[in-house]
Amino acid sequence: MALNELAQSFRDLHKPGQPLLLANVYDGITARAIASIGSCQALATSLSSVAAAQGLSPDRLDMDTNLRAGRVVARIARDFNLPLSIEFGSGYGDQLEQGMKQIIDLGAVGINLDDADTQTSKLYSIDEAASRIRRAVRASVSSGVPDFVVNARTDTLMHGGTIEDAITRGKAYLDAGAFNVFVLGGSERGGITTVEVMELTEAFNGQLNVSVKLAKGGLTVKDLAGIGVSRCSIGPQLQFVGAKAAVEVAEEFLKGGLR
């Protein structure tokens, strides 16, 4: 399948009311394990998980290291003929166009692009963030993938912004060429409420990505589908679950309790 056809198929998976579900991966092991699940429709990386797998914090993950991990996942995505989206942080400044070319060369058809600087956590102005989206879109067009999917993340709620601020930013990002908007609520804020998801979904005509919490008590995939969301992801939570399970087994082993 030609790369832009794969990008088109990735776009088609975003259906309001029947959301694309992404269990974010971070290395070859998790990518192959998730890709092997029959209901898996696409792969997506988690930047914070990729960083943690390298012993780094997200702000110290340089572009080359991030894309090295992406290259491994991309090989598996090709094996399973699955679309791949790379979490690209804030785009690495002046390296944005170069990074886009490398991302497309490795076979990915989507990115997450943040509106807060990965290194400093400083929130970009709306104009600057929208300009970076336009740069990414132009780079994808010049690389022959006009249907490349930019999932524009806004961190405004984590910086004291309101839902109205998130809507203003999201609409600007869609106008700039983003295909989806990802509004991050943040753990300190307690995530995003049902009412807020409804407001965001209506404002973006369903072109909304919501992070689903694996712990009980939060909004479920069924809840979000009923609201009309088009994309759900779990970010670094897969890594958290895996690490916890590994610690439990290792502790039992190191106590001499395993046979």
Rank of each mutant, 00 (worst) to 15 (best):
K171F: 02
N151S: 05
P146V: 03
N180G: 02
S140C: 14
E164I: 04
D105T: 03
D117K: 11
E164G: 15
T194Q: 13
E199K: 07
G185E: 10
H159W: 06
A203F: 10
D147P: 12
F148N: 09
D175P: 07
T168N: 10
N112P: 00
G160P: 09
N205P: 12
R132K: 15
L123G: 01
A130C: 14
E202A: 05
I163E: 09
G170I: 03
A203D: 11
F148E: 07
V149G: 09
L200A: 02
F204W: 03
R134K: 11
T162W: 01
D117N: 13
Q95M: 04
Q102P: 00
G190C: 13
E199N: 13
R132G: 09
T194P: 00
R138P: 00
N112R: 10
M158I: 14
T156C: 15
G190P: 02
D117I: 15
N180F: 04
S121I: 00
V197H: 12
G170S: 06
F148Y: 12
A139T: 01
L157C: 00
S142Y: 08
I163F: 07
Q102E: 15
G160L: 07
R189C: 00
F179M: 05
Y124I: 03
G186E: 13
I126E: 08
T118R: 08
A130Q: 01
G186W: 05
F182W: 08
E97A: 07
T154Q: 01
G107V: 01
A116R: 15
F204S: 07
A108C: 00
A136R: 03
N205T: 13
I167L: 07
Q95K: 09
P146R: 01
D105S: 14
N151C: 04
D175V: 11
L184M: 05
I192T: 09
I104P: 01
Q102M: 12
S143H: 14
A136M: 09
G110K: 05
A172R: 04
L200W: 08
I103D: 02
A166M: 09
G177H: 08
V181T: 08
I104K: 00
T194E: 14
N151H: 12
L113M: 06
D105E: 15
L184W: 08
V137K: 15
M158K: 11
M100K: 06
Q98A: 06
D105I: 04
T193P: 14
H159E: 01
K122F: 09
R169I: 10
I133T: 07
D114A: 03
T154W: 10
S142H: 10
F204H: 05
L123R: 05
R189Y: 12
E199R: 07
T194A: 12
G144M: 01
N205H: 13
I192P: 12
M100L: 14
L113T: 07
G161Y: 09
I163C: 14
V183E: 02
M158Y: 06
T154C: 12
I192N: 03
T162M: 10
E188N: 10
D115Y: 05
D155T: 06
D155V: 13
